[in-house]
Design a protein around this nucleic acid. Structure first.
Lengths: 109, 109
DNA sequence: ATCAGGTGCAACCGGTCGGTTGCACCATGT
DNA sequence: ACATGGTGCAACCGACCGGTTGCACCTGAT
């Protein structure tokens, strides 16, 4: 059950870049797109987008599939759950500590 | 209500480093700790930890408070919600698109 | 066969990152 | 007064990142 650490690593790292998040935004609406298509709507070069898509792929957030001479990328949001899981854990622990502290205080110092 | 983009940026960037996540883990259990204390349990130097704590602070995930000659850091998990919010949005959009697609298919091509 | 569009590969650049070391500063206890 | 322990500042390093450009490659249409 141990949350794969390097996986979470890659997911957060991928999500840290605004361009990458925008790409995911697009792919969350549009079923799939090519790097060249996506680059047209972004202020950076196609190669830059390709690199971004590569790191999204390595994080498992996107899946490329070749059809003919073009490569279409589709979103795979499952890995987000690992990341959310970690956040939930930290949040829960924090809440628990707070509750314990509150209890101890109410118990009369 | 627009989700502050650079804030989300900083949060994800901060969460992208395993050492930083470990620090948050510790601070989610322990009420507060100094950089030197935290460094003792980590394989890196105190200065490295100080830098990590700085970026956690800039992301709003941690709050330093000086007492005497030492500086104690406490967790503030609220900013996590922005990040989780973004993920939820993407997930929801993705689900909605999927549902729409499914509906269109069931409508008999 | 040839031409065009899409993709892949590689080198390069400036900047940031994680980490280190050395040292100065400042508050505290004796 | 002084030594001690915690903190802060600054420089340095190798590695990686976001981005660019140029060109080679392959696929498909004419």
């Amino acid at each position: 059950m141990s949350m794969r650490d390097d996986r979470v690593d890659a997911v957060f790292a991928a999500l840290a870049d605004p361009t990458r998040r925008r790409l995911l935004d697009k792919l969350a609406v549009q079923p799939s797109a090519t790097a060249t298509e996506l680059a047209a709507a972004e202020p950076v070069s196609r190669q830059a987008i390709v690199k971004h898509l590569r790191s999204l792929d390595e994080a498992g957030l996107v899946m490329p599939s070749r059809t003919g001479r073009e490569v279409r990328y589709a979103i795979t949001p499952e890995p987000l759950e690992d990341a959310v899981g970690w956040m939930a854990t930290v949040g829960a622990q924090w809440d628990r500590r707070l509750a314990r502290l509150r209890g101890r205080l109410e118990a009369g110092h």
